[in-house]
Amino acid sequence: MTDNDIVNGLKKGKTKALEQLIDRYGKYVSSVISRILRGRNEDCRELSADVFLAVWENREKLRAENLKGYLGAAARNKAFNKLRNEWEELPLEEDMIIFDDGEQPCEAVERKETALLVNRAVNGLEPITKELFLRHYYYGQSVAEAADALGLSLSAAKTRLCRGRQTLKAILLKEGYDHGEQNCENK
């Protein structure tokens, strides 16, 4: 059964399709959540179930393309929201890319699908920087935690993260990432 079959089944309200979705992506969703929550199996099980329930609730809008990405994003949001409730602020280092006025990626090149573009941009990073980048920004690990996991010093990790942000921005600009309606106002 393909993702397309599962999505079609879900849209028809078939719980069997939901079971198949969980069989296929349950491990992935719980892994993402577990990584962000640093274990905590009980919360992880709870949030994983919430992700699939949310998928069921929104099955009408579901698309077969990038189903895994959709589930990953949903899992991340659930887990980050849980952390935000506990910590107020995620411990993310300079969690932003700034596009200046002169930098109009949507004007520069033809628009492309965001997911595809972001994936390509992240995969364009140097491998160790990419892992560091993902540990920190995707899974919410602190810089120290991620640095420790990769055997890097804290300062080396910060330097790599900074370099990673610049590279990502450059790739996004080059690829024509549309970073919101506001950016296209001057079209």
Binding site: N66, G72, R76, A115, V118, Y138, G180
Partner: peptide, 19 residues
């Protein structure tokens, strides 16, 4: 200038490699 949050930007990323 416009800002984009990297953690939100990565909502569109699918991790097929780590963890």
């Amino acid at each position: 200038s416009k800002t984009v949050k990297i953690s939100e930007l990565l909502d569109d990323y699918t991790d097929n490699e780590f963890f």
